[in-house]
Amino acid sequence: MIGRALFGAAAALTMVGVTAAPALADSTRDQQWYLTDLKIAEAHKITKGAGVIVALIDSGVDPKHPDLAGALLPGLDTTESNLAGREGTEDTDGHGTGMAGIIAGRGHGAGAGVLGIAPAAKILPIATGGTGFQSSSFMTKAVDFAIKQHAGVINMSFGGADDDTVHDAIRKAQAADIVLVAAAGNDNSIGNTAGQYPGRYPEVLAVGAYGKDRKIASISITGPHVDLVAPGDQIMSTSIFDRGYEVSGGTSDATAMVSGAAALLRAKYPDMSAAEVVHRLTATADDAGPAGRDDTYGNGLLDVVKALTADVAPLPAAGASAAPSDDAAQAAPPAASDSDDLPEPVGVLVPALIVAGVVLLIGVVVVVFMMRRRRSG
């Protein structure tokens, strides 16, 4: 099944995930292969994301799941449905509960249950309701609420067509210095178009998915919009079914991984801007595929520990570039030392001095001539 749900009969947006069979509780942590792949135990020695709020725009989150105890803040239901007033805590689909577990699952007991990438972060659930996205105006409400609640990260594990209302909300969130993370999209084998926005917007960090072999997942859409890839195949997380667990996959899950990593960065570097957080995530990624950035892996595979610890060059100032382009070099005026023309002040001064010199010389000649006449007379 591509996507856990398609919200609304005419909806342009869909959650991008693939669900497999439920898992047994006592083997949950062992099946979280991505914790080892991302060296999360080492990362958690540095920070667990305390003090950071991750806004989760999704299907809602089940607050009674044992692994999410203490992880949820009062949220918002953006729809005009009978779920209004439930504060994002009604999830009839399960997608949002799964993403919450990946981002900030706390587990339970002695190493049991799902452990999130940022288990000390808080989830701000912003639910679209059981009947789904009624219109793109949900995004305006969601972003306004996230800004009001001081969210540091917004997770958008959904996607669809380009939409002006959604893009305007994205720009507003960017202006509020929020890290914006979205799914690159899943290949639904029907035109390769599922879920490419808001991931395609330049303000958003678009995330693709890779599997246990560290190769790009077959379902993950590739293209110039991909910024980073993260684990997104055979992902164990929290489920609404019997408040247990299930294995899923897709760029939704990979997006939640990166949102958790962004929360860790915002906790360690509280004065770092959202743009700098994104820069650090992409600059420290493990290169894969062809050397440098490519359309399959983007800047590479997420490296949480390196993002937290590496000495990263600062983000270039807006509008600045390391070297002028060929066009710019051709258009630039030549340096003064290479020019045959004198600078304007010098071009005026030299002729004036020449004229003054000629006048002075004439005066001297006249004076000498007059003195000789006097002597001869």
Rank of each mutant, 00 (worst) to 15 (best):
residue 254 A to Y: 01
residue 295 D to H: 09
residue 308 L to D: 00
residue 247 V to Y: 01
residue 355 V to F: 12
residue 314 P to F: 01
residue 357 G to H: 11
residue 283 A to T: 13
residue 238 T to G: 06
residue 323 A to K: 15
residue 269 Y to Q: 11
residue 267 A to N: 07
residue 273 S to A: 09
residue 328 A to I: 11
residue 274 A to I: 05
residue 301 L to G: 05
residue 333 P to W: 10
residue 337 S to Q: 10
residue 234 Q to K: 14
residue 309 T to D: 04
residue 341 D to I: 02
residue 256 A to H: 03
residue 276 E to L: 10
residue 232 G to E: 01
residue 295 D to Q: 12
residue 255 T to H: 02
residue 238 T to I: 01
residue 234 Q to Y: 10
residue 355 V to P: 05
residue 285 A to G: 07
residue 263 A to L: 04
residue 289 G to Y: 04
residue 311 D to F: 00
residue 287 D to S: 02
residue 349 L to M: 13
residue 252 S to H: 01
residue 277 V to H: 06
residue 317 A to N: 12
residue 267 A to Q: 09
residue 323 A to D: 10
residue 349 L to P: 08
residue 336 A to V: 13
residue 245 Y to M: 03
residue 339 S to H: 05
residue 358 V to L: 11
residue 321 S to D: 10
residue 345 P to N: 09
residue 316 P to R: 14
residue 339 S to L: 08
residue 255 T to D: 03
residue 347 G to M: 03
residue 255 T to I: 02
residue 327 D to Y: 07
residue 232 G to T: 04
residue 288 A to M: 13
residue 345 P to G: 08
residue 335 A to Q: 15
residue 238 T to D: 06
residue 248 S to Q: 11
residue 317 A to C: 10
residue 318 A to T: 11
residue 236 M to C: 08
residue 236 M to Q: 10
residue 286 D to E: 15
residue 313 A to C: 05
residue 339 S to W: 06
residue 290 P to K: 04
residue 352 A to E: 13
residue 358 V to R: 07
residue 356 A to N: 14
residue 294 D to V: 03
residue 302 L to R: 00
residue 328 A to G: 13
residue 240 I to G: 02
residue 333 P to D: 12
residue 348 V to C: 13
residue 334 P to V: 14
residue 270 P to V: 04
residue 307 A to P: 00
residue 342 L to A: 15
residue 251 T to Q: 08
residue 349 L to T: 12
residue 274 A to Y: 04
residue 319 G to C: 02
residue 283 A to I: 08
residue 264 L to I: 05
residue 251 T to P: 12
residue 278 V to W: 02
residue 302 L to I: 00
residue 335 A to V: 11
residue 331 A to G: 12
residue 355 V to Q: 10
residue 266 R to Q: 10
residue 316 P to C: 10
residue 316 P to T: 06
residue 329 A to I: 13
residue 310 A to W: 00
residue 260 G to S: 04
residue 247 V to L: 06
residue 322 A to E: 14
residue 308 L to N: 00
residue 350 V to I: 15
residue 353 L to Y: 09
residue 281 L to Y: 07
residue 342 L to N: 09
residue 233 D to G: 08
residue 315 L to Y: 10
residue 310 A to S: 05
residue 343 P to E: 12
residue 325 S to D: 11
residue 255 T to E: 02
residue 304 V to Q: 02
residue 235 I to M: 05
residue 248 S to Y: 13
residue 283 A to D: 09
residue 238 T to Q: 02
residue 331 A to Q: 15
residue 266 R to F: 04
residue 260 G to K: 01
residue 334 P to M: 14
residue 263 A to Q: 03
residue 258 V to K: 05
residue 303 D to V: 00
